[in-house]
Amino acid sequence: MKPAPFVRHVPATVGGATDMLAEFGPQDGRILAGGQSLVPIMAFRMARPAHLIDINGVAELARVSRIDNTLSIGATVRHAAFHRPVADAEMGRMLSTVVRHIAHYPIRTRGTFCGSIAHADPASEWCLVASTLGAEMVARSKRGQRVIAAEDFFEGIMSTALAEDELLTEVRLPILPSQAHFGFYEFNRRAGDFAIAMALVTYRVTDGVIAEPRVGLGGAEARPRRIPEAEAALKGRPLEAKTFQAAAEAAAQAIDPIEDIQADAEYRRELVRAVTRRALERSVP
């Protein structure tokens, strides 16, 4: 096997998983769900967990359910669950639009929504969705349960507020209001690659102008987040090219871009301008 040696533990219940995490978390223990990010990193021996707690057998974590205006997504729900709408109207459409940008089909059948959130790659589509919509992350440990807001959850590149004994059991996504508009645009070099920059926008239209705008950016900074400057450029303005252009410009100016071999800061800023405007253009039916 390519990875460094490790011990695999297989809990049957959430309680069992958090017990194990309490014991093994401090000894380099990690949760294994779909394994589509963790296992490749282990194969390079860049991650060397001594213990893997495999939650794939915990039945109660495999559910998507709607409670009032919240969509609850359990820890082992696969990306592929969103290929078809899991919620009514815009919410279901938004998720099934975004999911098609996540890697490739075989990976989507195995990788999980919550795994992406816990892994916190800045280029993760689900992290962008969670940030833009203001998701709540439910963390369970032997010590109890707490709910963490998206803005507090993502701390940096692959770094979250989860403690080493905490299991992300569920992500609660607020359902988009009826008649919401959304637009998503992702730029990458090949189909299925990590986003170099992407934008998700949502808003409602009241009296012919934009209300409750949300502009989220991913892949551009160390963590996905909403861009208040871009939202301010939209709020109360009519749906027109000039508005979108102004919001895109505001987003490009507001970011603190990451740099890598695909994109330097200046290019990423240009991409942010383009993806923000295009996400807005796609939001218009």
Binding site: F44, R190, A191, G192, F194, I261
Partner: peptide, 16 residues
């Protein structure tokens, strides 16, 4: 070498 995995070295796929 900064391109030692297929996440960084990008051969075309059927889509390209």
């Amino acid at each position: 070498i900064l391109t030692s995995t297929l996440a960084d070295y990008l051969p075309p796929t059927a889509r390209e």
